[in-house]
Design a protein around this nucleic acid. Structure first.
Lengths: 214, 214
DNA sequence: TAGATTGTTAATCGATTAACAATC
DNA sequence: TAGATTGTTAATCGATTAACAATC
């Protein structure tokens, strides 16, 4: 499977393809052409074919793409057929929201632990997980083969915690703290900077105002 | 202020500049050159200068950029000096988390209302806001000059609610539902697709595995 | 086979980087 | 003034779109 370096632009589009194909599948659609898919998704057919061909050909000339097959293949590319153990660090509002709402299991992510520095939360149960104190983290990571840490703690502690996690063998960090983490090669970080996102929205409202209202 | 169309690539970087400049300001740094900033932020100095020059010159030859001034100016570009009224629709885990955790006021966003379809939540207080039933939304939007709706409801209802909001004069939607909203020109939508983000992380873990382990 | 549609190459477009003249 | 560093133009790089031959 010779995967050259796929650009982040392409990777960023894969989950959206996966979502639409899941819906088509659910609706009972069997086959779809790049042209039809392009109309639904509002991208060019050319881009769709180029994107898929980064991973080898999933289609058939004269026929198009089999929805079920394409859905499965993109799922595999995204690694959703693999199991990954995960912990959430920071059991405040956001941490608990993710624990309750993300449906991790459906995508192969198994929530194994929840940690918080606030003693009042220790022992509290969220889903089937008991919140533990922070100083249990590192042993837990090693003993339970934890791959992914979700960081929902303030930025002040995030950098330090991330460093320790890396030292203890974590492989990926889903980072909700408003800070850029510095990790070695081979450790994957995906940032969700909510305030950045809100500022983008603010920019677009503001720009629209200055362009139209005045 | 002749703002031509600034590319989304540039806009996407503005919040990060804002964050770093805020930190520099906090640390008491008075001036900084594009070269120095590029080292801290790990981007090219060229990109920094190009980005800033989309909005006119904020620097001075031979000196660099005044941190305080640049911070203020980027804040203005992002519209953070303006006030915007906001409601959250969906007072479940995620909605409450955002209400509690986002510090909306600091960035000029004023949380005015919280809505949920679950009767058990009606009357519950989050921060200084009482959760109201869904059928109060549209009147509330009109009467309270609501600009922004935060959608933290399931995708099944998100499309319909968004449509109604648009009809009732909402100007922007911060969308956490796993669905693409279809809105008319001039209505701003910013999507936070958390599961897409998690899938990207999954892809990168998986790719690293197939490239190194096997 | 003829028609449809992919896979893939070539052309275009846009974004990033490099270079340097302008200027504080 | 000389040195530093921006603002801006030009060169490069990468991503998107168009076109079409291959093929089901």
């Amino acid at each position: 499977m010779d995967e050259k370096d796929i650009s982040q632009a392409v990777i960023g589009r894969l989950p959206r393809y996966f979502r639409y194909l899941g819906e088509l599948k659910y609706e009972g659609v069997e086959r779809i052409s790049s042209q039809e898919l392009s109309e639904v998704m509002k991208v060019t057919a050319s881009q769709i074919r180029q994107d898929f061909n980064n991973f080898g050909g999933f289609g058939q000339q004269g026929y198009g793409y089999n929805v079920e097959y394409l859905y499965q293949e993109i799922g595999k590319i995204l690694g959703l057929d693999k199991k990954h153990n995960l912990i959430i660090i920071g059991a405040g509002n956001l941490g608990q929201a993710l624990a309750n709402y993300m449906n991790f299991e459906r995508r192969g992510f198994i929530m194994k632990g929840l940690f918080d520095s606030n003693p009042e939360l220790h022992g509290k149960q969220v889903r089937d997980i008991i919140v533990q104190p922070m100083d249990h983290i590192m042993e837990f990571v090693k003993e339970n083969e934890i791959d992914i840490a979700v960081l929902t703690i303030p930025k002040t502690s995030a950098v330090e915690v991330a460093e320790h996690l890396v030292q203890n063998g974590i492989r990926a960090i889903w980072n909700f703290a408003h800070v850029d983490l510095n990790v070695p090669e081979g450790i994957q970080v995906e940032n969700v900077h909510l305030s950045d996102s809100l500022m983008k929205l603010s920019y677009n409202i503001n720009r629209y105002d200055t362009e139209h209202k005045k």
